[in-house]
């Protein structure tokens, strides 16, 4: 397993942000805001935690990754490209005909995508099925799902949650990207989620709320979760900022699904080169 220090992971998270923003800029289409809010834990998963093999993407013993909020594909693609699942130069093909990098993840086209997603609310069910399959076959792999906070307005998320608890899937780890924004406004305005950590806890998950941009907290939490084989699925609710790392995108609803122009792109790259600010 590729095990990086926290400092190296922070650098890697910047690199993935740069790649994700570049992909959206080149394509002039895509979803930068949520890609940036999810960047830090996605980096920790791909570059420290998950047992995956770019040489053998369908390796039966691999850890699985399900991007339930499939529209933030650019951040997963950035991770897959830097990890070596797909040649790095392919990042210039996002949303192009024939590209492995479809607008939303397509498991038929992109090595390392464990299941196609893009219609919100559905990925967690698939992750539950993968985790259950692992349990039935007594395999050691784990399943990591990334779920958006807005997406938790979908009823199917809670159907999936109750089944994860029933089948005691302690091999399932759910990351909630709690950035507080969705297309039509704040989640508070559109449909309040209240406390997602308490909700998952009430369903029977082992839960924790962390700063989703603190690599230290992410790594420490993953260490704790790895050891907890207690019959409970895990839910890590991450306080995040949509657009994190690019000042003019941060906490701005309009950057959900919009590409930067040339000037904006240059500014984004300059800011990201300076690292994350607190």
């Amino acid at each position: 397993m590729d095990s990086m220090t926290v400092e190296r992971l922070k650098e890697k998270a910047i690199q993935l942000r740069e790649t994700a923003v570049t992909m959206v800029y080149k394509a002039q289409s895509g979803h930068p805001g949520g890609s940036l809010s999810a960047a830090d834990f996605v980096t920790a998963l791909y570059f420290k935690e998950m047992n995956v093999n770019p040489e053998d993407p369908n390796w039966a013993e691999r850890d699985r990754f399900v991007l339930s909020k499939g529209h933030v594909a650019p951040i997963q693609y950035a991770a897959l490209a830097h990890k070596g699942f797909v040649p790095l130069e392919m990042i210039n093909t996002l949303r192009e005909y024939g590209s492995p990098f479809q607008g939303h993840p397509d498991s038929k086209k992109c090595p390392g995508v464990d299941i196609s997603t893009g219609s919100l609310g559905q990925g967690l069910s698939c992750a539950v099925g993968m985790a259950l399959g692992g349990k039935l076959d007594e395999k050691a792999y784990r399943v990591f799902a990334v779920v958006g906070d807005g997406e938790c307005q979908e009823g199917q998320i809670w159907e999936a949650a109750q089944s994860a608890v029933k089948y005691e899937l302690d091999n399932l780890v759910v990351f909630i990207d709690d950035n507080g924004l969705q297309i039509d406004g704040t989640t508070e305005e559109v449909m309040p989620n209240h406390d997602l950590e308490k909700k998952f806890q009430a369903f029977g998950f082992e839960t924790k709320r962390i700063d989703g941009h603190s690599m230290e907290e992410i790594v420490d939490t993953l260490d704790e979760v790895r050891e907890a084989k207690n019959g409970k699925p895990k839910c890590i609710v991450c306080n995040t900022v949509k657009g994190k790392g690019v000042s003019y995108m941060e906490n701005v609803v309009g950057w959900h699904g919009k590409a930067p122009n040339e000037e904006q792109y240059k500014l984004a790259m300059e800011e990201l080169a300076g690292g994350l600010h607190a």
Binding site: S107, L124, S125, G129, G133, A160, Q162, S163
Partner: peptide, 20 residues
């Protein structure tokens, strides 16, 4: 899965990726 058909379909998809 109980009275939760949407989850039944998604969960089955996940199972199918593991060879079931």
């Amino acid at each position: 899965v109980g009275i939760a058909e949407q989850n039944a379909a998604g969960l089955a998809a996940g199972l199918a990726t593991t060879g079931k």
